[in-house]
Simulated scan of single mutants.
Amino acid sequence: MAQLTMVQAICDALQVALEEMPEVLLLGEDIGKNGGVFRATDGLWEHFGDERVIDTPLAEAGIIGSSIGLAVNGFKPVAEVQFLTFIYPAFEQIISHIARLHTRTQGAFPNSIVIRAPYGGGIRAPELHSDSTETFFIHTPGLKVVVPSTPSDAKGLLLAAIKQPDPVIFLEPMKLYRAFKEEVPAGWYEIPLGSARLVQTGTDVTILAWGAMVPVAMQGASECEKSGISCEVIDLRTLDPIDEETIIQSVTKTGRVVIVQEAPRTLGLGSELMAMIQEQAFYSLEAPMVRVTSYDVPVPMYALEDEFRPTAEKVAQAVYKVVQEGGM
Rank of each mutant, 00 (worst) to 15 (best):
A125T: 04
V7P: 03
V7A: 11
K33C: 00
R178H: 04
F282G: 09
D42N: 03
G65Y: 13
I98S: 00
K144W: 08
V145I: 10
A275T: 13
F86A: 02
Y189P: 00
L44G: 07
L171G: 10
V168T: 14
T201H: 14
S152W: 14
V205D: 03
K321Q: 09
Y320D: 12
A186K: 11
G49S: 10
G142S: 09
G49T: 04
P288Q: 07
G268M: 06
E134T: 08
V16S: 02
I234K: 14
M1Y: 12
D50E: 15
E29R: 09
G74V: 11
I54W: 08
W210M: 14
F75W: 05
V323P: 00
N34C: 07
F180H: 11
V24L: 11
R197Q: 00
E20V: 10
L157H: 12
Y177M: 05
Q200E: 12
S130T: 04
D204V: 06
A209L: 01
L44Y: 00
S230D: 13
T238S: 15
L304Q: 07
I277A: 01
T150G: 07
V297S: 08
A209F: 03
G35V: 02
Q278V: 07
G35F: 02
I169S: 07
L236M: 15
A90G: 15
F83D: 10
T103L: 12
S112V: 06
S230M: 02
Q3P: 02
S66P: 00
G28H: 02
E245L: 13
Y119C: 08
V7C: 10
V81E: 07
A263R: 10
I64T: 12
L18R: 03
Q8V: 13
S195Y: 13
E245M: 10
T135Q: 09
P110Y: 03
H97I: 15
A221H: 01
T140W: 13
T105E: 05
T238R: 14
Q324T: 12
I94R: 12
Y189E: 09
I248R: 11
S112Q: 12
H97N: 11
P310E: 01
S152D: 10
T103Y: 12
I54N: 05
L171D: 00
E244N: 04
A154F: 05
V7K: 09
I207R: 04
A40W: 01
